[in-house]
């Protein structure tokens, strides 16, 4: 896959990729330590996973904003779509390349998992499912970002809009909102919102629970956004 190769290596052709990875790493580990990785005295990555969705809300759009916006701005999209490549291949290849880059970012946080393994005796199954959940959340956010990026020539606009959408989608089912609306909204509505929320699904996965509803939520959302991406690009 030449496009995959080009996009993936593209992250390392300029300093931007390294900067994004470094900032992500510092934020994740920093927050994990700050929120009591040591002081809680438990062999788990809870303090890593709990703040993770909030970091991904910023990290993923930063990775994905360039996917289409840059091609449109520089005019190289003309080049891309006069190559004998179908739009579907291009959409999927770009998505997977960015996802692979995010995968590297997540792999860097294994350092904390290893530390945990050295210090204590964690449940590796829980950690594994947490990483699966993180990857699925990342792919859903990334597909949203890809759509935003395809809609505009401007990377900054793509970034801001996708951060807003990801933030909104995460907040929708948070306990914070439930408390806020608790007295005025019907319980059914709150339950429905929780069903659509990233935070709730991710929380269950980081506790080691891979349930069908969470899996299908992520997969359907990702595929739907890639479909929209294709339509926007073909337009």
């Amino acid at each position: 896959m030449p496009i995959f190769k080009k996009e993936f290596l593209g992250y390392f052709r300029s300093p931007v990729g390294y900067v994004i990875l470094a900032v992500f790493h510092i934020m994740v580990i920093g927050l994990a330590l700050y929120s009591g990785y040591y002081s809680r005295n438990e062999a788990s990555l809870n303090s890593l996973f709990r703040p993770l969705p909030w970091i991904l809300i910023v990290f993923i759009p930063a990775v994905g904003m360039r996917l289409w916006a840059e091609e449109k701005r520089s005019g190289s999209i003309e080049l891309l779509f006069t190559l004998p490549i179908s739009p579907r291949t291009a959409v999927v290849a770009k998505f997977l390349a960015a996802l692979a880059f995010i995968g590297i970012g997540l792999c860097l946080t294994f350092s904390l998992a290893m530390t945990t393994g050295y210090l204590g005796n964690p449940d590796w199954g829980v950690i594994f499912s947490g990483y699966i959940g993180a990857m699925l959340t990342a792919s859903a956010f990334l597909s949203i970002t890809a759509v935003c990026s395809a809609l505009t020539k401007n990377q900054v606009i793509a970034f801001v809009i996708s951060v807003m959408i990801c933030l909104f989608a995460t907040l929708m089912g948070s306990d914070w909102l439930a408390q806020f609306l608790g007295s005025s909204a019907p319980t059914a509505l709150l339950d429905f919102l929780r069903l659509l929320s990233f935070e709730q699904h991710f929380a269950s996965m980081s506790k080691g629970l891979i349930d069908i509803s969470a899996l299908s939520f992520y997969l359907v959302l990702t595929l739907a956004c890639l479909g929209i991406n294709m339509i926007v690009i073909e337009r």
Binding site: R13, S74, G75, S76, I77, L79, T82, L83, P84
Partner: peptide
């Protein structure tokens, strides 16, 4: 096809870019 803006990917080297196009072709 040579686009009007002679668009390319600025951060790639000439060889990298031509290799990419050839592979994609």
């Amino acid at each position: 096809y040579l686009p009007e803006s002679s668009a390319a990917y600025p951060e790639m080297t000439v060889v990298e870019f031509l290799t990419y196009v050839a592979e994609a072709r």
